[in-house]
């Protein structure tokens, strides 16, 4: 089974040279720590920066330079700043190659819910609806089940949707899956996890073809 860093590590293997990538808050942020050797990517943060770097050294933080999680950051050589309209132009115009975000639920049709629990949590969608409606390539990073042990990979989302038919890949603590017309296609198992365990933790239609290999993380 993978921990959050393991999920980030597996997703990082999907990065390709030259990609512009938008990372959501939570597990997706960790992906920046595992960029494979020899690959150049640039991170976009939707509040208006391309070429985001690591956190600043103590004492060098600047209130005017933050990411979409409101964290102080630095910039890399070649970075740029821009306004919010241009930033979402990059996103809607599909200039950003890959979006990695968290989710509360994903359906077998690729629908995603991650912004609202009616009556409980209403923080807003931020940029998530723009990102999922526009990106060609969306990877969801999340735990396979919720705290109550219920599957988060469903036939149909129960929470208000963020976007419809948009998720292409899901990486969880148990598995790597692709969303196909028929449902979740199991591609890889997390280390030490059996196909049976993945089956039991997946409510949506799960497609298992042949032997399912175990993930290789390093």
């Amino acid at each position: 089974m993978l921990d959050k860093n393991g999920i980030a590590k597996r997703i990082a293997k999907e990065l390709q040279n030259g990609y512009f990538v938008n990372l959501g808050i939570g597990i997706p942020t960790l992906v920046a720590n595992y960029i494979p050797q020899g690959i150049e990517v640039e991170f976009q943060s939707e509040n208006g920066v391309l070429g985001m770097g690591p956190f600043p050294f103590e004492g060098e933080e600047d209130a005017d330079i933050i990411n979409a999680g409101k964290q102080t950051i630095t910039t890399m050589p070649g970075a740029s700043f821009f306004d919010s309209a241009m930033s979402f132009g990059m996103i809607r115009g599909q200039h950003v190659d890959l979006t990695i975000l968290g989710a509360m639920e994903v359906s077998e049709k690729g629908d995603i819910a991650n912004w609202k629990i009616p009556g409980k949590m209403v923080k807003g969608m931020g940029g998530a609806m723009d990102l999922v409606a526009s990106a060609e390539n969306i990877i969801v990073a999340m735990m396979h089940t919720n705290k109550a042990g219920e599957s988060k990979l469903l036939k149909k989302c129960s929470l208000p949707l963020t976007g419809v038919g948009c998720v292409k890949k899901v990486v969880t603590n148990l598995a790597f899956l692709e969303v196909t017309d028929e449902g979740f296609k199991l591609i890889e198992r997390a280390p030490g996890v059996s196909v049976e365990e993945i089956k039991n933790a997946t409510e949506g239609n799960l497609i298992i073809e042949g032997d399912i290999p175990e993930m290789i993380l390093d």
Binding site: P56, E60, A63, Q71, I73
Partner: peptide, 12 residues
């Protein structure tokens, strides 16, 4: 004041 919401840093 330019308050910082999430002060995130790394050690030198």
């Amino acid at each position: 004041e330019k308050r910082i919401e999430q002060r995130t840093v790394r050690k030198k």
